[in-house]
Write a protein that binds this DNA or RNA. Structure first.
Lengths: 112, 112
DNA sequence: ATACTTACTTTCCTTTAGGTAACTACTAAC
DNA sequence: GTTAGTAGTTACCTAAAGGAAAGTAAGTAT
């Protein structure tokens, strides 16, 4: 990233990506579902501090972006499963880089 | 990411990373500075839709996290330069993955 | 009939983010 | 002395995000 054409080359796509996944919760929800939490209550319990209202709203947005799939199983009580899609997996490199950076950052701020 | 221990292993550090860099503007500002925009007005002009107020606030937060350095040159008119730090460079892999994902995402939503 | 469970939704309220526009302090140029 | 540039700040207001708690619908268990 040395010159201005690189600036515009990065600003636009990074902005596009941030429009979809920025915010506190979306990636955490995808991590939870990817790790095996498929039901609303499971996901809610796995992510500290998230509320049902926020989870509900974020799940809808993720579904709209085809980053998760919502399936209703007609049992009783009704069973609903959220699963990842092939598109979710395209985010794994981003999640992994964030995980590595976060691990190092914690070392940095706690003074190693 | 298959099981619950991987869930907690990823949720915490990714959450730490998001605490520092999430939001619409911070990564875009770092891209702009990395690309050679070092002055307030240059950065402001390089990022569509950002306002002086928001830029000012975000620059302060980035400086507090040592992700940029603010230097005052005592000339006239006064010259202030924002520069990246070695710590900024540790974010490049994240930015690059976001750039690649954003490029592909635009292809996906515009129907290739 | 009552209570419980799942998967949310609704209401109310507070906080945070963001936009617009005007304003400031300093200096230089005309 | 008026205009212009740099680097912001301030005030005012709206919008979006988020928290807490209660409520809802549909079925199951007792």
């Amino acid at each position: 990233m040395e010159n201005n054409s690189e600036c515009i080359n990065a600003l636009l796509p990074v902005g596009d990506a941030l429009d979809v996944i920025s915010g506190k919760w979306k990636l955490l929800i995808l991590i939870s579902i990817s790790s095996g939490n498929h039901r609303f209550t499971d996901i809610e319990r796995s992510i500290p501090k998230i509320s049902a209202k926020v989870l509900s709203k974020e799940l809808k947005e993720l579904e709209a972006h085809t980053l998760i799939k919502r399936t209703v199983y007609d049992q009783s009580p009704v069973l609903i499963k959220y699963t990842i899609t092939p598109y979710t997996e395209t985010l794994y490199p981003i999640i992994e880089e964030l995980r590595l950076w976060g691990l190092n950052h914690r070392k940095v701020i706690t003074g190693k």
